[in-house]
Computed example of a mutant assay.
Amino acid sequence: MGKAKLFAWGVAIVIFIVLMIVTPSIPQSEEYHNFADQRKLFFGIPNTLNVVSNVPYLVVGVVGLILCYHGNYFRLSLEGELWGWSFFFVGVAAVAFGSSYYHAMPNDARLVWDRLPVSSCIVN
């Protein structure tokens, strides 16, 4: 990587950090955490249907990882492709855990765990 490109990346990172520090946070309404299903149905899990509905993310993430590595099902030819798809499917599986953790007891402190895995899937 040339010096000019490295300098440009450094400037961009510094600008990003400064903007993150000076930009005020956007408040989240408390009504956001008020979901329709607030029952304890299955083994006393709070907000059961909201929590259990995340299981398909885990299934898709695990199946995707298995297909990536078992016999090259997707016919990936470059090492970067395998890494990219692996990170994507790990992110999809992580959505199941993060979203379930948030939906079990929705509040501002847990909201980051609902959104973080989703944003990792978008980045890939």
Rank of each mutant, 00 (worst) to 15 (best):
G2P: 13
K3H: 09
K3F: 08
K5M: 14
K5R: 13
L6S: 10
L6E: 12
A8M: 08
W9K: 13
W9S: 14
W9I: 15
W9T: 11
G10N: 04
V11T: 10
V14H: 06
V14M: 08
M20K: 12
M20A: 15
M20R: 12
I21H: 13
I21G: 06
V22S: 06
T23W: 09
T23S: 11
P24T: 11
P24E: 11
S25K: 12
P27L: 11
H33T: 01
A36G: 12
A36L: 14
D37R: 05
Q38P: 03
R39I: 14
K40L: 11
K40D: 12
G44D: 05
I45Y: 07
I45T: 10
N47K: 04
T48F: 06
V52F: 10
S53R: 07
S53H: 00
N54K: 07
L58E: 06
V60T: 07
G61T: 03
V62S: 06
V63P: 04
V63R: 03
G64E: 04
L65R: 09
I66C: 09
I66E: 04
L67G: 05
L67K: 14
C68G: 05
Y69Q: 04
H70C: 02
H70Q: 08
G71Y: 02
F74G: 04
F74K: 01
R75G: 13
L76P: 01
L76R: 01
L76F: 00
L76M: 12
S77D: 15
S77R: 15
E79F: 13
L82G: 07
W83Y: 09
W83I: 13
W85T: 01
S86H: 07
F87Q: 07
F88P: 01
V90P: 00
V92P: 04
A94K: 00
V95M: 10
A96P: 00
F97G: 09
F97I: 12
F97Q: 08
F97Y: 09
G98K: 01
G98D: 00
S99R: 02
S99A: 13
S100T: 12
S100M: 15
S100F: 05
Y102S: 05
H103F: 06
M105R: 14
P106K: 04
D108S: 14
A109P: 00
R110S: 14
V112Y: 05
W113V: 09
D114L: 09
R115E: 06
P117G: 10
P117H: 09
P117W: 09
C121K: 03
C121W: 01
I122G: 01
V123D: 10
N124C: 03
N124P: 00
